[in-house]
């Protein structure tokens, strides 16, 4: 069968490609990114704390299991004991996990409260999900729209259908990036036009659903200028996998220039008023 052998060939090619590219790849990403905001760092820490607690409990539980599997087996002639209850240990292993959980809940609560603190922002951006693209609107203090544009996937069809080689940012590149200033508290208002989408930038530790008819809030304060990529994370139909998010964080002055250029006036009063919010 023609198609089968084509698949096989493809599979073989893929394996070969995998093996060949492996050493080139700088660092294999396998953990939650530390990110570039205070919140993202805290979330990362939280993640690591819980992870290590689980590892520790795992070592104890699986250790006991393994010891028992090795030492208490019939084939080495171990006779079964008959004990089958102990209220004392039951209470013990109810209470101890409870304390561990409380210990986890405290930092978790602290971080959550901070994430929910959307007030005191320096500028507001509306993020609107569509099937299958994002729209960004820069709003002034009374939430009137100043600048807006759509942000579409920029990866070519040819790359997706394997006709050309895939570039480094395959599926994570857009035509118009969201541009925000560094060292600024940016508040996002998220909504959607059709179905539910979800706006996720891992490096900011922001993931918030964009729900048609409702507005969700999120905020970030990025110190490090750079380009940060994310994806839509709520199934939103056919091209859910093809509506990435790219945020370019630039120094404040650069942002002002960019913003003024967007407004089409390089020193319009209005433009400055908004841009100055960023200071």
């Amino acid at each position: 069968m023609m198609s089968k052998s084509r698949y096989l060939a493809q599979a073989a090619a893929a394996i070969a490609a995998m093996v060949m590219t492996m050493p080139v790849r700088a660092a294999l990403e396998y953990n939650m990114p530390v990110g570039v905001t205070d919140v993202s760092r805290q979330v990362h820490d939280l993640h690591m704390i819980i992870f290590w607690i689980c590892v520790a409990i795992g070592v104890v539980v699986f250790g006991a299991m393994l010891v028992s599997m090795i030492m208490h087996r019939k084939s080495i002639g171990h006779e079964p004991a008959t004990f089958h209850e102990s209220t004392k240990v039951e209470i013990l292993w109810t209470i101890v996990p409870l304390f561990i959980l409380v210990a986890m809940a405290i930092p978790a609560t602290r971080v959550l409260v901070e994430i929910y603190d959307t007030g005191g922002e320096d500028m507001v951006v509306e993020v609107r999900g569509y099937q299958w693209k994002w729209e960004y609107k820069y709003l002034d203090a009374s939430l009137n729209e100043q600048v807006s544009f759509f942000s579409n996937l920029a990866t070519s069809r040819a790359e997706i259908t394997n006709q050309t080689t895939k570039n480094e940012n395959y599926l994570l590149e857009v035509d118009n990036e969201l541009v925000i200033p560094a060292n600024t508290k940016v508040r996002f208002l998220l909504t959607a036009n059709d179905v539910i989408h979800s706006w996720w930038v891992p490096d900011f530790a922001i993931k918030k659903d964009a729900i048609p008819g409702f507005v969700n809030e999120a905020w970030t304060y990025v110190e490090e200028p750079g380009i940060y990529r994310g994806q839509c994370t709520e199934l939103c139909g056919k091209d859910h996998g093809f509506m990435p998010i790219v945020v370019r964080v630039v120094p404040k002055e650069e942002f002002q220039q960019w913003y003024a250029a967007q407004l089409g006036t390089d020193s319009g009063d209005e433009a400055l008023a908004v841009a100055q919010l960023a200071q």
Partner: peptide
Amino acid sequence: DKGVSNYLW
């Protein structure tokens, strides 16, 4: 809590 939604209506 989610009164900002009125922004759309």
